[in-house]
Amino acid sequence: MRGLKSRKKGRTNRELLLFSLPAIVWYVSFCYLPLFGIIFAFKDFTPKPGDPLVKNLFVNSPWVGLKNFSFLFLSSEMPKILFNTLFYNTVFLILGIIIPVFLAIILAEIHSRVFSGLVQVVMVLPYFLSWVIVGYCLYGFLATDEGQVNHILRILGGSAVFWYQSPEYWRFILILTEVWKSTGYSMMIYLCAITSIDRTLYECARLDGATFLQRVRHITLPLLRPTVATIFILRLGSLLASDFGLFYQVPLNSNSLQPVTQTLDVYVYQALMMEANFSYSAAASFLQNIVGCSLLLIANAIIRKLDADSSLM
């Protein structure tokens, strides 16, 4: 009996491994092979045209140690830049979970399916607008002379605000823009996760006379926990990375706003705008990755302690 069971187990393992194989092959060729790019961060990468890759990498390019990282630390603004990056990412992390989960739960209860579908499609539309376009639209609202907002202010008797030169408003504007753009997408994912919840649980709750809030607290939220935890952990992995478009294109790269809009990615972009130096950008992203990786591991360990099922590994 034991033998039979373990034989079966072995077969299952083999079958499941076979299931994973195509994806593994894909990951090896499209994610793992390019990983050698990480060593650009420690090299002065100077390829000779026409030489094979390996020669370009090891013969033509000298090791330079940590030199490629130094441009990051020459800026006296670096603490502020790091603060901005962490500040926005933390806010987005929290709002990016609370708001979509809330909306998804409500939407799942709406009686009319057609209406619920309409809400979903409208909410998800902004996700597909590029940041450049979002930047233009926002300019339509905030332009000093022709902007809609100043227009309304003038009608109300106020004076026009120079929005693109007033950093004090922009933390709020950026957060609002990000929430507006990404909520629909996350909401869809949670909505989809809610459909995986066993409906009979709700039926029982209904028969027991549970209120809506009780139902949410005792059924929906606990069952959404793994998905929320997964998304939370994965997003922690990119805590030092920021959406370049949001911080550069949406404020139209206005100099006056730079104290509140500059994040690490914007800094790197501005530094390398004149001359593309791929070793420097490799160094910057290596740094982001290392920090992200450690955060992810810590978060995963904590969550595993709290609730083993919700952790990633």
Partner: peptide
């Protein structure tokens, strides 16, 4: 691969 990427050039 979600945490580390080789970057544009190596890809």
């Amino acid at each position: 691969p979600m945490l580390f990427s080789g970057g544009l050039v190596s890809t």
